[in-house]
Design a binder for these strands. Structure first.
Lengths: 129, 129
DNA sequence: CATTTCCGATTACGGATGTAAACTGTTTAC
DNA sequence: GTAAACAGTTTACATCCGTAATCGGAAATG
């Protein structure tokens, strides 16, 4: 599932507050993003059409739920970001991101742990391929 | 400077082999990416028009050079990636990327070093904001 | 010199995207 | 029950994007 910028906004909202009704989405995005309600309706419609959202009929209206997993979309987006910007080579990307990101001590610790566990699971293989 | 997928491919090539002539770009991308020469020409033209490439006239032809810094484009792309996918919160993004990326022992070590240096410079502040 | 070739410029075109109005059927409020 | 509000569907439209053909002028080549 490939999501556009605007679609990510909608999906992020829905992933965070599933299931949701159109009115809630319209309210949330009209406020934060300054979209007209028509625009939000279009987004919802397109997302349903492309299979990213599922609808569940409640009486007369629908309730929207994500039909794709956030983690899958994140994976795809990450993949395509890495490919396009770094030619798929993750290491420079990570170095760059770590270098420029604001990270709390907690974040840093978590990352360190993760690195350690990766080091163990993948004992050597000094180079990329 | 905001680059599209296809534009990134061209720019990456040119950043790596500046200054370049159209023929070289066409050769490189025709081979690797299966683009027709017309497509490459369009790309070059658009990139010049949008100010990402500069041309230097050599006799009759042009030589192309990047007019924007790669690091700036990377910054923008990273920013927009983080914003769209993770709502701008870098930490989960990094965790995810580190978790899923193939990293060599070297890469891991470099990352660890970077984390350490960040830990020092930013001694505590246990949480994000 | 005429023809092919190379290259940059112009034009094309369908699909995606952001943005939204208009239409339609229903629910609700006066 | 008639008008207003709501919700989903259709239609709209300019721009961007990927992909490319075509045009026009210069260079090379026979």
């Amino acid at each position: 599932m490939q999501l556009s910028d605007a679609e990510w906004i909608v999906m992020n909202l829905i992933w965070d507050s599933q299931p949701t009704e159109a009115s809630a989405v319209i309210a949330a995005l009209g406020a934060g993003n300054d979209w007209s309600d028509a625009t939000v309706k279009t987004m919802l419609h397109r997302l349903v059409k492309k299979g990213a959202l599922a609808t569940e009929q409640i009486g007369k209206k629908y309730r929207y739920t994500a039909a794709v997993r956030r983690s899958d979309c994140i994976r795809n987006a990450s993949r395509s970001f890495l490919d396009r910007v770094f030619g798929g080579d993750a290491a420079p990307a990570l170095l760059h991101l770590v270098k420029t990101a604001k990270l709390s001590q907690d974040d840093l610790d978590q990352l360190r742990e993760l690195l350690d566990s990766k080091s163990k699971n993948q004992p050597n293989k000094g180079s990329k391929e």
